[in-house]
Amino acid sequence: MANIIINGKGYQVEDGITILEACNRLGIDIPTLCHDERLEPYAACRLCVVEIKGKGKLETSCSTKVRDGMEIETHSERVIRARKEILDLLFSNHPNDCLTCEKSGECKLQDYCYEYGIVEGTYIGEKKNYPLDESNPFYTFDPNKCILCGKCVRVCSELQGTNAIGLKDRGFDTKVSTPFDMGLATSKCVSCGNCVAVCPVGALMPKKRERYRAWEVRRVKTTCSYCGVGCQMYLLVKGDKVVGVEPAKSRPNNGLLCVKGRFGYNFINHPDRLKTPLIKRNGKFEEATWEEAYDLIVSKINEIKGKYGPDAFAGLTSARCTNEENYLFQKMFRALIGTNNVDHCARL
């Protein structure tokens, strides 16, 4: 354990953790735009700077480990001045369009500018002016809103392992880009949307069918129904309609999703979606109750089994079922029907 002093108060924290981690655990709020505990420390936004006694320059709390006897100021006048200047610099090269920006209300830059009293970017000069990349069917990239925190690039490489995007050019002209700047559609992007999920500003935004504001939706936690992994996610519900999905930072997916879970929610409100079982009567499917459907299945199984024996059956189950459901399915075939003719689509 390390004994440290933060803002004049003594604490005992675990050895080997960063100042930012320590502060998070102690409930001391430090702003950051580029930090994500799942990724390697990046130390690019510099918002998390703190003053450490005995050090001339400010240190980023995300990349500095606590040491015994360390004296830290997280909100000294010098620190606040630096944070304000950094936010001013960022905002000076950012569209001032919070009124219409889709991210408004959940934008970290907006939050911190509010917290630190930055009303406008005061530096007058060149501003980013790039075309939007709308080539991906599920999300849009607006480089003009990008603050180059690098989270999207790092999630794509460190967690998703796709390496579809990277940084192009350098200095003021640095831009998140695809190889040869040819656009997302031609890149290796698998549209998992994990970059969209980590973007702290409105640079990476899902393409929306319904317009909604962050404060208009309820977040309902659920399990993704696309496969057996059981990813946890939030359905964004406006009124009685699911208008979006966000990954939940819990097991097993820890904030990640795939293209299906992230963007494949439109079936929920689709008019063709089946909401009851259908039974074919006189050559036509008709809506039925679950009781009717089960009765029909049971009677047909018994009939066929009696006539042709259990091996007349073959079962094929789906990857959209959970492990438990798949287990029950094979159990039903082996024990109930009495055949080993059972398989799963993922094996094909």
């Binding site: 990046y42 130390a43 690019a44 936004c45 510099r46 918002l47 200047e85 950094i86 610099l89 960022l90 000076s92 090269n93 530096y123 007058i124 000069g125 060149e126 603050i147 180059l148 690098g150 940084l167 050019d169 350098r170 200095g171 003021f172 002209d173 640095t174």
Partner: peptide
């Protein structure tokens, strides 16, 4: 410096540019 800044951190990427301007 503006030309050679790597563009990673905000003070160098944005700050030196504003200073140059």
């Amino acid at each position: 410096t503006v030309d050679e800044s790597c563009g990673k951190c905000v003070p160098c990427r944005e700050g030196t540019k504003r200073m140059l301007e």
